[in-house]
Simulated scan of single mutants.
Amino acid sequence: MAAPMLRGLAWRGRALRGWVGGAPRRDITFKLDERTAHSTLDLFKQDTGVVYRVLGIDPTKVPRNPERFRDWAVVLGDTAVGAGRHYWEVTVKRSQQFRLGVANVDVSRDGCIGTDEQSWVFAFAQRRWQAFVGGEAMPLPSVGQPERVGLLLDYDAGRLSLVDAGWRRCLHTLSADFRSPVVPAFALWDGELLTHSGLNVPEDLTGD
Rank of each mutant, 00 (worst) to 15 (best):
W19S: 13
V20D: 05
V20Y: 15
V20M: 11
G21W: 02
R25G: 12
F30W: 13
F30M: 11
E34G: 15
E34I: 15
R35N: 12
T36N: 04
T36F: 03
A37M: 15
A37F: 06
S39G: 10
D42K: 05
L43A: 13
L43G: 14
F44A: 14
K45A: 12
D47F: 12
T48Q: 06
G49Y: 03
V51A: 13
R53W: 06
I57Q: 15
D58G: 05
K61T: 15
R64C: 11
N65D: 12
P66F: 11
E67R: 10
F69Y: 15
F69H: 10
R70N: 08
L76R: 01
L76M: 03
D78C: 06
A83Y: 06
R85A: 11
R85K: 13
R85T: 15
Y87W: 06
W88P: 03
V90F: 07
T91M: 14
V92Q: 01
K93P: 00
G101D: 00
D106L: 01
V107N: 09
S108M: 02
R109A: 03
R109V: 13
D110R: 12
G111L: 12
C112F: 02
G114P: 03
G114K: 02
D116S: 12
E117K: 11
Q118R: 15
Q118S: 09
V121T: 13
V121W: 05
V121S: 05
F122Q: 09
A125L: 09
R127F: 06
R127A: 14
W129D: 08
Q130C: 09
F132A: 15
V133D: 07
V133A: 14
G134H: 07
G135F: 02
G135W: 02
E136T: 15
E136G: 05
E136H: 13
A137E: 15
P139C: 04
P139H: 02
P139T: 02
L140Q: 08
P141A: 05
S142G: 04
G144T: 07
G144D: 06
Q145M: 13
P146H: 05
P146A: 04
P146Q: 07
E147L: 04
R148P: 00
R148V: 01
V149S: 05
V149E: 05
L151Y: 03
Y155E: 02
A157S: 12
G158F: 08
G158K: 14
L160N: 10
L160G: 13
S161G: 07
L162S: 15
L162Q: 14
V163F: 06
A165C: 04
G166R: 12
W167C: 14
W167R: 12
W167H: 15
